[in-house]
Design a protein around this nucleic acid. Structure first.
Lengths: 83, 83
DNA sequence: CGCAAATATACGCTTTAGCGTATGGAGAAA
DNA sequence: TTTCTCCATACGCTAAAGCGTATATTTGCG
């Protein structure tokens, strides 16, 4: 389901879960996006320094998409500032 | 609303829109997260090489959160592999 | 138009991701 | 135990983000 991720660690965890669900090894995923197994490992480990491109490539290969939304959810009377 | 972002450019655009909605300058946002105005500029420009940490810090300061979900939406006959 | 604020860009520097390559360790199956 | 797959980690290297600082350039307002 939808996974909220506020930290690199959470992002890495989502990527890893998805990869496993697709039954792919880090090596196999790496090959899909022309990156080293070590790079995938690093991304899944939640490195703050990982590059945006790395994440997006991995997500794309895993059939994931990224959604950005205001942090306030559920209550509707506080979404006041997004023009 | 929820913004799907599949490219660094789209991510940067969302960040920029939100920042403007909050009436912040790149400089002001940069100060909040201890980063240079130029770094914010780069992030908003959609640099694939921007770091995950940079994005997350900016999003946090802007009251944004990131959601990761399977790419397939709407159609139900292809959500086969997410255990 | 003229000016000020905001944003893009530049230079030299430091730090580090990702590269190729290689290995060590954990876990599973024979 | 041996073997095999998978993942974490290591070393030297290259490319580039982000830094401080500074300056173009663009944008908006009077």
């Amino acid at each position: 389901m939808d996974q909220i991720a506020r930290t690199p660690g959470q992002i890495g965890a989502v990527v890893r879960r998805r990869r496993k669900a697709l039954d792919l090894s880090q090596d196999a995923l790496g090959e899909k996006i022309s990156m080293r197994q070590a790079t995938i490992s690093n991304l899944e480990a939640g490195d703050r320094g990982a590059k945006l491109g790395t994440l997006l490539d991995a997500m794309s290969a895993l059939g994931l998409e990224l959604v950005i939304r205001p942090r306030t959810r559920g209550r509707s009377d506080e979404m006041d500032d997004l023009a």
